[in-house]
Simulated scan of single mutants.
Amino acid sequence: MSRAHDINRSFFPFGNPFRMKSPRGTKITSQLLLVSQAFEASLEERLKKLIPESKDEILSLSWMTFAMRALSESYDDIKTLVTELELPVNDWDEKWIDVYFDISVKLLDICNVFSSELSRMSQGHLLLQCALHNLGSSSSEQYGRACSSLDGWKQHIGSGNPRIEKCRNILDGLLGSLDLPKVKKSAKGKVLMQAMYGVKVLTVFVCSVFAAVFSGSTKNMLDLDVADIYSWASSFKSLQDVVNEEIRGRFSSGRFTVMNELESVDSSVKELYPIIQGVVDPVKMESHTKIVEELGKSTEKLSQGLDLLAKEVDSFFQVVLAGRDALLSSLRSGATVIHSNMGVNRNAQIVS
């Protein structure tokens, strides 16, 4: 898969399978068109809501939680779409099903990676709590303990997670899912594939942002070039531009972390070091007390944010898992598929 220095390559070199004039026998009816437009309108609205009003909102745990929730809601929309299309499993191309299972495995894998990193960051909460407890005293001995706890927290957060290294390969696989076999002889299949393209674009974007934040590196960042034929394309481009620009700016500034809540805790820790190490007279309790209070607030906000995001990642994991179970059940019974995470074939270029 390409990196930042590679030449842009098209994931769709053979033309547009969703052109307005479909081949004979696959014409999209007005009813199907309305279904497709309703889906795209919902996706566009979701993308607009993800565009932050302020750059300060980007890379906050609350924004990341909202982004992960948007993924779950989008896959729920696909579930509704498949029900409306009444597209039975026996109408699915064998390749669709194979690709579906392959993609869903990748999504489950990346959810597990994200969950492990969120758990690792949450484990640092105890060290911060120990530091806050010892900072409640003016004893030099307890100050020393507080300093040790804060040092331990910084080392823990900065130590990295080996599992994050898997993200690049998983993202490469998800990118490949944007370039699948053409849909033939099925108007309903075309509507489903077109809808799934939008969901897959959102999925790759959100997962790449998470991977970049958790890895502390731009190597997992991706820039998708979406064709303008979609009503939601402009909103997606605006979202991608503002988020990716901010991420790159933060990485280039050499910050300890690019995540807002972690940055807030680190800022308080830096202010406290001169006091707890005796560089500044600890008798100046007013300033000391205020900084400790700020650290306490930042610590609690970080802990709560990590918990909420972890729950959303788990919810998305369950959505994907339920989709696999539903397809397996449908394959056994020959019933209508009630959920899908399948990828799609579309015009897309990638620079990473």
Rank of each mutant, 00 (worst) to 15 (best):
L32W: 06
R248N: 06
I276G: 03
P13D: 14
A187N: 04
R324D: 11
S287T: 15
L150D: 07
V292R: 11
T289N: 15
L61D: 02
D179Q: 15
V209K: 03
G160F: 08
P162V: 05
F114Q: 07
G296Y: 06
S215G: 12
K311F: 11
G173Y: 04
L126S: 10
S352L: 05
T80R: 15
I28A: 05
A195F: 07
A195D: 08
H288Y: 15
H339E: 12
R145E: 08
L272S: 10
S62C: 02
L59H: 02
E86Y: 04
N112V: 04
T83N: 11
S268C: 15
P17K: 12
K185V: 03
L126F: 05
R19Q: 15
S252H: 10
F114T: 02
W232A: 05
L108P: 01
L308C: 10
L180G: 07
S159C: 08
M342W: 08
Y100H: 15
F101A: 09
M221Y: 01
A131R: 03
S330E: 09
S215I: 04
Q277N: 14
E45I: 00
V89S: 04
D93G: 06
G216R: 00
L127Q: 08
C111Q: 05
I338N: 12
L108N: 07
S104D: 12
K79V: 03
L328H: 05
L59T: 02
K188A: 08
R3N: 10
Q240C: 02
L132F: 05
S268D: 11
I276F: 12
K27D: 09
P282V: 14
W153V: 07
S177L: 07
D266G: 00
A41E: 10
L321W: 09
G278D: 11
D281P: 06
N220V: 04
L150C: 11
E53N: 08
K79C: 10
K182P: 06
G323F: 00
K49R: 12
D281W: 14
S2Y: 08
M68G: 02
S303M: 04
